[in-house]
Design a protein around this nucleic acid. Structure first.
Length: 487
RNA sequence: GGAGAGGUAGCAUAGUCUGGCCUAAUGCGCGCGCCUGGAAAGCGCGUACAGGGAGAAUAUCUCUGUCGUGGGUUCAAAUCCCACCCUCUCCGCCA
């Protein structure tokens, strides 16, 4: 979520920034938001002033009934004088009557009323009636405030809705271009192998090696599901153990998190409302299947305030991830590049605002280091404004070359969201030099998407006879095994 | 699944029966100051979050809301009523 104060103060600047996303719908929301915000504050002032007066007055009015020290004649006079002001909705005037009365200006108030104070017995009845009138009038005032509150609630609902649909603003360093194709590749690293035979795509290699079973996966669960068998399953396990061990060494604390999460968490990290169609909801309606462990890690700290010394906080988790892939229907239907359920090792960094861009570089380099250790050719892609996605201010993708399907595969994606998620989930830190708590910056990156890493390993390490050499770094995780051979 | 006890600002507790002097107290912790050669102790002051308003102000003043969450009753709710969530103890069942 963006800062409403920023939108209020610099709406044109915000529009200009959102314009870089080539998202006209987002830009169009700003004027509506500014109008709703102004209206909200106007009504809020009115309601709060009225509440303040009502609260003060209510105490004084209530005490009239229990007052045993003041003669009833005088109580009646006060009630009468207050009632007159309340009927005219002059609440401050009514308070003034009480203040003057307590200051001792009783005789003036008593003498100012229309009905003269009479003998004791009649006063009691008149007083109680007057008091009931006063209570009734107070109730009317409360009801009027409730109506105002309701109006405010409706405005806030629309305001929130608009705010929740606004994407993040790109960082000034992000190149402004509209499309995915405009993303800027950095120089390729690692060595692309030259093959003296035609390298096969993984959807051929996998079944031939007996390690990916597409047919039975589909039999179980339908299209875009698969089964890893034997060395396939073991390779996956080796891979994420390797990745987690490396990240532990790099200073990430490992987490095991729930795969079923509630709706508010999906809002907190920015998946909802925009991507509600791409997630799976379980039938009882209260849970969603985790689309990425980023959602769990970001939201586990919702509502919390860190000490500055606690930061940065580096977390990693390996989880299954579940995605409907409705938006990509028909794309990448072969193989395991785009599937409904996959494993991913994720990194999340919670950083102080002035350190978050250094953290982004570090996180991205960490990710590249992992690809490098696996001996895969890769490149960094600088993501342009139009392809940033909903939550990121700046993003790098890491791609690895897959010689079998002859394409660059997005194997990792590292983003800074600045305070966008922190604001949604309310995650702050207390600055050491004092001052109010402020929002942290939150970053996330994959390290790495497992199926695509498996694709890259199979396709890059294949040999002419259809075997696949196991990368050096994974061998310790596979009992020293060096090669996967066809059945 | 059954029974009971709970959820109050960083922590621990009071307040709830009996609605209004709660503008939520007290202790601990933490911060600042005094004191000291320095420290401890002692003393003083300050210490939740959010949203508004005044203001040049990230100074200060001020208002509203929040006592697990949401409703309700009432002129008025931490306090009474209803629903839900969570925690703890015991019992039952179970991988």
């Amino acid at each position: 979520m963006l800062d409403i104060n920023l939108i209020r103060e610099k709406p044109d600047w915000v529009k200009e920034q959102l314009g870089k996303l080539f998202d006209e719908g987002a830009v169009a929301r700003i004027d509506r938001i500014v109008a709703l915000d102004a209206r909200r504050r106007e009504l809020l002032q009115d309601a709060e002033n009225r509440k303040g007066s009502r609260n003060k007055l209510s105490k004084q009015v209530g005490r009239l009934r229990g007052d045993k020290n003041t003669p009833e004649g005088e109580l009646y006079a006060v009630a009468e004088a207050v009632m007159e002001k309340v009927a005219a909705r002059d609440l401050d005037g009514a308070m003034t009557v009480f203040e003057e009365f307590s200051k001792g200006e009783r005789s003036r108030i008593v003498s100012s009323i229309k009905v003269p104070v009479v003998s004791q017995g009649k006063n009691e009845k008149r007083f109680n009636e007057k008091l009931n009138d006063l209570f009734a009038a107070m109730k009317e005032i409360s009801d009027e405030i409730s109506e105002l509150d309701e109006e405010i609630r409706e405005i806030e609902e629309e305001l929130d809705e608009n705010m929740l649909w606004l994407p993040n603003i790109p960082h000034e360093s992000v190149p402004v271009f509209p499309h995915e194709e405009d993303n800027i590749p950095h120089p390729e690293k690692g060595t692309r192998r030259s093959f003296d035979f035609t390298p096969k795509p993984h959807w051929e290699l996998g079944p031939e090696l007996g390690i990916i079973d597409f047919e039975r996966g589909v039999k179980l669960s339908g299209t875009r599901f698969y089964i890893l068998a034997g060395m396939g399953a073991r390779l996956q396990r080796a891979l994420y153990n390797f990745l987690l061990d490396e990240l532990n060494k790099a200073g990430f604390t490992e987490l095991y998190v729930p795969l079923l999460i509630q709706e508010h968490a999906m809002y907190g990290s920015g998946q909802f409302p925009k991507f509600i169609d791409t997630s799976y909801r379980v039938e009882d309606g209260t849970f969603y299947l985790l689309p990425t462990s980023e959602v769990a890690i970001v939201n586990m700290y919702a509502g919390e305030i860190f000490e500055q010394a606690d930061l940065p906080l580096n977390h990693t988790a390996e989880t299954s991830c579940f995605r409907q892939e409705k938006m990509s229907a028909g794309r990448d239907v072969r193989g395991i590049k785009r599937v409904h359920q996959f494993e991913k090792v994720e990194m999340v960094v919670i950083a102080e605002p002035d350190k978050s861009y250094d953290a982004l570089e570090w996180m991205t380099e960490t990710s590249e280091g992992l690809v490098d250790k696996l001996g895969l050719p890769y490149r960094r892609l600088e993501i342009v404004s139009g392809d940033l996605g909903f939550t990121a201010t700046k993003k790098y993708d890491i791609e690895t070359w897959a010689p079998g399907c002859e394409e660059w595969l997005e194997i990792s994606s590292c983003s800074n969201t600045e305070a966008f998620q922190a604001r949604r989930a309310s995650i702050k830190f207390r600055p050491e030099e004092g001052g109010k708590p402020q929002f942290v910056h939150m970053l996330n990156g994959s390290a790495l998407g497992i199926p695509r890493t498996i694709i890259a390993i199979l396709e890059n390490y294949q040999t002419a006879d259809g075997s696949v050499i196991i990368p050096d770094v994974l061998r310790p995780y596979l009992g020293g095994q060096q090669i996967i051979e066809p059945k």
